[in-house]
């Protein structure tokens, strides 16, 4: 099952609908493999944003632990986003589909985020990050269209409505959850992970 999902990464990156169709045809919709992709994408994303860990003098051991914990939080965020899209598609379009199918397809659509560590690239990194976000959005539209059997306009509508719903949730019930997530990240890193300006060299 895992191998199937990983095999589907290249066609998913190429935004081919067959990739998502093939995934959904698998037993259990290949959810396990998709979750592995999201977890690896989470590690890659955390590594790409790890400047704050270095800046706060986090030790190598805590650095690795932080990447793993942030990847786990990334998976939870992904599940919340999948649930939002799944609920929106059902409520707006009346298209029922198993949640596992939606999560698996959207998880495969996270494949471009496997490259998020490239955000570290000096000077070009932020542009690369923006390009990967757009790439992921396009793959997610493919995944949603295939999973719920939607036309292009319907897919866009679900995506926009899902995004709005996610924003609303983040600003309401998401806040205490985010606070817990922040506390966990700081606890694992062993510091408050404030944006950190290093002190001067100054004569001592």
């Amino acid at each position: 099952m895992l191998v199937t999902a990983l095999d589907l990464i290249p066609p998913a990156l190429a935004l081919r609908p067959e990739a998502f169709q093939a995934l959904l045809a698998r037993p259990g919709f290949g959810l396990q493999g998709a979750l592995v992709i999201v977890f690896l994408a989470g590690i890659s994303t955390s590594f790409g944003q790890s400047v704050v860990l270095f800046a706060n003098h986090v030790s190598p051991r805590r650095f690795v632990a932080s990447l793993l914990v942030q990847a786990a939080l990334f998976v939870l965020t992904f599940l919340a986003w999948s649930a939002t899209v799944w609920g929106t598609a059902f409520l707006l379009m009346g298209r029922p589909a198993p949640f596992a199918a939606a999560a698996a397809a959207i998880g495969l659509a996270y494949a471009p985020q496997l490259f998020n560590f490239l955000v570290l690239t000096p000077y070009l990194g932020n542009g690369v990050g923006a390009a990967l976000s757009v790439w992921t959005l396009l793959a997610t539209l493919q995944a949603v269209g295939v999973t719920f059997d939607l036309a292009r306009a319907e897919t866009l509508l679900v995506a926009v409505a899902g995004w709005l719903a996610a924003q609303a949730l983040q600003r309401t019930i998401g806040r205490p959850v985010a606070r817990v997530g922040r506390w966990v990240r700081h606890a694992v890193a062993g510091t408050t992970l404030d944006p950190h300006e290093p002190p001067g060299l100054g004569p001592r």
Binding site: F54, H57, S59, F115, L118, V119, P122
Partner: peptide
């Protein structure tokens, strides 16, 4: 392009690791 960006992505690690005291 990937190889080029990959070589760049690891470029800051020496400076960052130095700052972190690694």
């Amino acid at each position: 392009v990937f190889a080029l960006l990959l070589s760049g992505a690891f470029a800051p690690l020496e400076a960052l690791g130095w700052w972190a005291g690694w």
